[in-house]
Design a protein around this nucleic acid. Structure first.
Lengths: 128, 128
DNA sequence: CCTTGACCTTCCAGAGACTGGAACCCCTAT
DNA sequence: ATAGGGGTTCCAGTCTCTGGAAGGTCAAGG
């Protein structure tokens, strides 16, 4: 398979796939003409990566998960730890964003939004 | 005031304040020795920026908000539009993260987390 | 055989918002 | 004179791609 094929099948852009090769996440063979030549196993890896990335795992988490994915003698506890840590980061982000939303939506509700200069939003940003 | 003073009072690191000068958010005067010399108005701006950033506004939003903050003839509707747009982006992010969390927490619950290789998390990442 | 167009290749730069570090200057106190 | 704690500039790195330029390759059509 050429890069366009795996791009279509994995849902990842060719640029991203080249980048993943750059950083050592996949190592496709090369054809005589210099084109990357992807095996089924490469496609599986890229699909796996696409899913992991869409769940918000960092590239380094993905690297670790991929290694476990490839390792038949893995312990599921290792996978679970990575996932739980990531889950905790997600929860933290959600909490941070929710706090922002609460503050901001309060200010937005207070603001008349007309042609006058008085603005509780700016006031709120000034006062903290 | 020197940069250390405004850093302490605004809560922003000196590096960040220099960066904000670089991109034109503040323009402190210079003392004879080359040190930045901040007025009260600079401190107010930096404090404002710190608050806006902590609510997740982008630098470009901050630039626009700061211009409105300085403009006595502003219309509060302009401020409100920026805030509402940002609120929508926050809500979108929260929704995206919540979706990740739901998928991931389901997988984590399914995983035994022991020393055996069988792992619903990896399975889930493989299958999408 | 030549051209066209769709592939593919590499390399460089930029996005956002800082942050770390190096190398150096300035000011005050001892 | 020196030590320390300021300050200055500039360059590079973070993270994960993404856009673009310049150019090689391949299959189909005239």
């Amino acid at each position: 398979m050429n890069i366009g094929d795996v791009a279509d099948r994995s849902g990842l852009p060719p640029k991203t796939i080249r980048y993943y090769e750059d950083i050592g996440l996949v190592t496709p063979k090369r054809a005589a003409n210099g084109y990357r030549s992807f095996r089924d196993s490469d496609l599986h890896k890229l699909t796996f990566l696409g899913h992991a990335r869409s769940l918000g795992f960092s590239i380094e988490d993905c690297r670790a998960l991929l290694a476990l994915y490839e390792d038949e003698t893995r312990a599921s506890s290792d996978v679970k730890r990575i996932a739980k840590d990531h889950l905790a980061r997600i929860d933290k982000k959600i909490a941070d964003l929710a706090a922002m939303r609460d503050t901001l939506s309060h200010l937005v509700r207070e603001c008349a939004g007309d042609d006058r200069p008085d603005c509780p939003i700016l006031q709120g940003l000034e006062d903290g």
